[in-house]
Amino acid sequence: MSSETGTGTEAAATGGSASSSLTLESVRAITKKDFQDSIRSWLFWGLSVFFFTLMAVLAGFIAWAEPEELTTLGFISLISQVCKLVIPLIALVLGWKSIAGERETGSIKVLLSLPHSRKDVLVGKLLGRTAVLSLSLGIGFVIGMLAVAFAVAEFSFPAYVAFLAMTILYGLAYMSIAVSLSSVTRSTTMAGAAMFGVFVLFYIVWNSIQSALGLLMRRGYIDGVSYTGTTLTGQQQEMTRLPDWALFIDMIDPGNAYQNTITLFSGLSGENIGTTFNEAAFPNGLPFYLQDWFSLVILLFWIVVPIAVALYLFDRGDI
């Protein structure tokens, strides 16, 4: 049987791509279709309206209160509070059924009957849904800007746009988690449970870890780090903080990583707001993994690792 010679010419005719590889055209076609499809989801628009409302209320509040000397970064920091909580919700809801739903209805066979690899499908879905999420973010950020006209002193538009880009990265990280979990579960019920698990993990469990570790430190189970700090009244005082590794655990949460990157925009807005961790608490210098730029690495980790694992697993086994 002349399958070897036959495949040579065929492979050349279709761009020489192996069956499990990624191709740009396929990813683009799937991204476009998925964007068209999921942008018509009522649930997505419902959540988006919730997000828009929060942004409008926040902008309205800032405009009404007219806080003294609200800087661009101060404004961004307020907005990031809203985004940190709402974006995971939209991303998880939007990504929930991305693959599991198509498996359940069988429409994944429509996708895979066409010359797309399974990897194309995963990446296309991730990008398509992130694009939909980004649209919602863009609208929300325009609404948020209303406050700028009234309250923000020396508004830095570049810093705001860069922050929007960072927020999209944060959305991409949660979308990566959502699409990946959707691809490894066999039903939308299981996928839904997984989404809820992620929600509980990062909204509730992760925040408790710090309190728990703090408690353990005060009870003497964990050795804290002592340093001389300045209290609010300006007095020098001996203080104790959690050890580096415990602080790092807190940084792993995508939401915390996202917020910690805000200081990176100080260059763009010409402000100097220091770092997330008080440098006085680290007399020997801040370890690299607690520095703010490392939060960007953590955010990239949450984008790359879930989808990479899913790409590996989804390619094996049966649809």
Partner: peptide, 27 residues
Amino acid sequence: GMDAQRHSRAIRHRTGVLPEGVDLYDR
């Protein structure tokens, strides 16, 4: 003439499929 696993993409490029019992994209 091609291996169904290794050259699936090239095969599907030249194949039209009507799958059974699947839903389309409602929207």
